[in-house]
Design a protein around this nucleic acid. Structure first.
Length: 105
DNA sequence: ACGGTGACGAGAT
DNA sequence: TATCTCGCCACCG
């Protein structure tokens, strides 16, 4: 499928993630039938237009950690948004995927 | 065309 | 468990 279509599907999928839950980049790629394109999923979110207003912060890496360096000073924007939804991070700056992963994708 | 980069991930050590 | 290595692929200069 064309790249733009792939990006479009990524956005549709991310839009369905419920508040307080997360999915991984690889999860999205696999669900789209492209298990080796996790990096492309990351790129899609990186370049997602603001007006789409999708919950991009609900996508984390395989370790339950934050990949983006989107910050305000030392503070991670993504972590802040997730904590606002009740998600708790451990001392290593990672969340428990066994607990927060959304399998409905 | 080409090599470097990165919001990734799996496997080896 | 932590770290390293390598494959992956869109984008950019």
């Amino acid at each position: 499928m064309a790249v733009s279509e792939f990006f479009q599907r990524v956005y549709e999928m991310v839009a369905r993630i419920p508040r307080g839950k997360v999915v991984t980049y690889g999860q999205i790629a696999a669900a789209l039938g492209a298990p080796r394109q996790a990096r492309t999923v990351g790129w899609a979110l990186h370049s997602a237009p603001e007006w789409l207003d999708i919950p991009w912060h609900r996508v984390v890496n395989r370790s339950g950690g934050i990949s983006t360096r989107h910050t305000i000073g030392e503070l991670s924007i993504q972590r802040g948004l997730l904590e606002d939804e009740g998600i708790v991070f451990n001392e290593d700056g990672r969340l428990d995927l066994k607990r927060y992963r959304w399998a409905g994708i």
